[in-house]
Write a protein that binds this DNA or RNA. Sequence first.
DNA 1: TCTGGGGTCCTAGGACCC
DNA 2: TCTGGGGTCCTAGGACCC
Length: 423
Amino acid sequence: MFALVDCNNFYASCERVFRPALEGRPVVVLSNNDGCVVARSAEAKALGIPMGKPWFQVERGLRGPPVAVFSSNYALYGDLSRRVMQVLADFGPRLEIYSIDECFLDLSGVPGDRTALGLEMARRVKRWTGIPVSVGFAPTKTLAKVANHMAKRGQSPAGPVLDWARLPDPRATLAALAPEDVWGIAGRLGERVRRLGLASALALAEADPRVLRQAGGVVLERLGRELGGTACLALEDVPPPRKQIMVSRTFGERIGRAEDVQAAVAAFAARAGEKLRCQRRRARAVTTFLQTDPFDREGPRYFNGATIVLERATCDSGQLVRAAQQGLAHVFRPGLAYRKAGVLLPDLESAGAEQGLLFSAAPADDARTARLMECLDRLNRAPAHRAVRYASELCGDAWRMRQRRKSPAYLTDWAELPVAWAH
DNA sequence: TCTGGGGTCCTAGGACCC
DNA sequence: TCTGGGGTCCTAGGACCC
């Protein structure tokens, strides 16, 4: 038996935790560079503000009450997410953090009334973190998603909680659910499913698995079985190690100067190194890519990347920065206006499990590097944010994101701690 | 004027091995 | 006239998730 706990309108709810006056008002959170809508409060959804649309287009047609608009504040969302998960971990021994705002719990063998349990989860998370959540219980992950979805849409008599096992008519519930509303089915797969003549989640659940396998591979077959109540997806409480690490940004403005692009790429590589060490992994190669504005119809289009293979796997930011700059030199063309760049570490291995070299040119200096990186990471942790940087990061900052409406880092920066006044 | 940033899994096909 | 059988590994591309 699985539980899926999902935060309601997570980013918008995070903004409300420290701005309770926003309760009941439409709230919207934008992507980096204040580009697209990535989160909406219930009131914002009711105004018809669509997910994923560029804000400047949404803003034009807006009628009705004023909308509170925020740049995304990942320091805040990340910290609140950690707290929510911590509260939920008390409810079951096995928990899988599926994304920043949702987790699965394995409740097999947990006795008692699940609906009461779910209500207690929601009450405690709200009380201890300020974040509202919905809870779905079911024998498979896919059905838990369905149950959660229904609870969120107010289709459960128990409010924010729905237990699949207590549904009076689960077949009717699935019959009313469109294939595209099933977790794992989007546009393309939806089309394929409909071409098979399957027009609902129930049809999918009752279809012959061999037909599903034939039409949509093992992915679709699993979906059908999961909807039918046979669990095919296990709880992954030990997160598998990452296979790649990427850091990329759209620049705040178009950039032509080589130094500005170099500064961006250096910053991305250094950040990728931090992530790498955080996961105790090493990179065998570094890919640098950059591109012009894909929405610009006039100017020349350019998208290119280059991969530098390292002699030895490393988690040394200095080496990553150097390799990223080498890659950049291969693909940078003067005279273009760049809009985005990124650094990808495509091929990771675990620290301590490196492939040795038969003919090594450079002597290994792992102990010294490890001490240096540890020192670097310690200095760059709060409160002195990014106190130490690579020189090449400093030769330009034109790439920095536009974030005009960012709320304070209430939880992660002493200087931005919320202040309460007592009269 | 203005358009995100991460990830994963699966499959097919090519290249190669013995 | 006629040309095997069984594998692995890698990569690119498609599809999906939040």
